[in-house]
Amino acid sequence: MSLSGLLITLVIGAIAGWLGGLIMKGSGFGLLGNIIVGIVGAVIGGALFGMLGISTSGMLGSIITATAGAVILLFIAGLIRRA
């Protein structure tokens, strides 16, 4: 992965993690937390969208996919935390 690819991945992860945090909790998790949640969310969202036959392209599609995965990740984490 090139340096520019890594930077784009980190930016998308940060945006998706921040959006996921806003949707599920009402605030973000700090820069590092947002990046981690966003990147893990991208993996979850990509797998889920792939199983559903939904394809996205471009940076906006990547942000949507990663945000959807981040919301799912935070929802599951909230269920586990309450149990």
Rank of each mutant, 00 (worst) to 15 (best):
G21C: 11
L60H: 05
I15L: 15
A47M: 13
A68L: 13
G45A: 02
L31W: 15
G38P: 14
S55R: 12
I35T: 03
G13R: 08
M1K: 15
A14Q: 12
M51P: 02
I15N: 05
V43R: 10
G45K: 00
L48I: 06
L60C: 07
W18S: 12
S62V: 09
I63Y: 04
G17T: 08
S62P: 11
I64C: 03
A47Q: 12
I80M: 09
A47R: 10
G41R: 01
G41S: 08
I64R: 01
G20D: 04
S57N: 07
G69Y: 01
L48S: 05
T9I: 01
A66L: 09
I72H: 00
G33I: 14
G26C: 12
A14Y: 12
F75T: 01
V37S: 07
A14K: 11
S27L: 14
G33F: 15
I36P: 08
A14L: 15
L3G: 08
R81K: 10
G21V: 07
M24K: 13
G20K: 08
G30Q: 10
T56F: 09
I15H: 04
V43N: 08
G45H: 00
V40Q: 04
L48Q: 03
I8F: 14
I36F: 14
M24S: 06
I44E: 00
L79A: 00
G53F: 11
S55M: 10
F75H: 03
L31H: 11
L74W: 02
S62Y: 10
L6Q: 11
A68H: 03
F29L: 14
I36T: 06
V37N: 08
I80Y: 08
A83W: 02
L31Q: 12
V37T: 08
I63M: 11
G5S: 15
A68M: 11
G20L: 11
L60P: 07
L3V: 13
W18R: 06
A47F: 15
A14P: 09
I72R: 01
G38I: 12
I44Y: 01
G13I: 11
S57Y: 09
I72L: 12
G26F: 14
I15G: 06
M51S: 01
G26E: 10
T56Y: 05
G13C: 15
G17P: 12
V11H: 01
S27W: 15
S55Y: 05
I80K: 03
S2N: 14
G17Y: 15
G61D: 02
G20R: 07
G78N: 05
G53Q: 06
G30C: 15
S62F: 09
I39Y: 13
S55C: 04
R82P: 05
I8E: 14
I63A: 02
M51N: 00
L48A: 10
I15R: 02
L79I: 02
L6F: 14
I80N: 04
L79V: 00
L60D: 09
I23V: 12
K25Q: 14
S62C: 10
S55L: 08
I12N: 06
K25W: 10
A14V: 13
S62N: 14
F75M: 01
S2Q: 13
N34A: 09
I23W: 11
S57K: 04
I12Y: 04
F49D: 00
G26I: 11
T65Q: 02
S2A: 14
G69D: 01
N34I: 07
A66Y: 05
M1Q: 15
V11E: 02
A42W: 01
S57R: 08
A66G: 10
L6Y: 12
M24F: 05
V11W: 07
G58P: 10
F75P: 02
G78P: 05
